[in-house]
Amino acid sequence: MLLLVLLQAVVKAEIYRLGATISAGIIAFAASFGISKIGTQAINATARQPEAANDIRTTMIVSAALIEGVSLFGVIVCLMAFFF
């Protein structure tokens, strides 16, 4: 009985918005954490061997874009929770 009232309150208060926004924040944090690791290693590798700078830069950008692709999967799910 209490659960029913609670569920109704949750729906009316649109708490799904809270879930979607917190998830978007977690996704942003996770993606930036992953990509910062790539950036760090790219800088270290370039410092060790400056001739390979171009190859390292290309690899870094490609890996960053792939990770961003995964994070945007999550953003799409948040958008769907928000608007549907």
Binding site: A65, G69, L72, F73, V75, I76
Partner: peptide, 13 residues
Amino acid sequence: FALMIRLFANIFA
């Protein structure tokens, strides 16, 4: 499928 979602989500966002 991942190719499709990656391009769509990046540009849409």
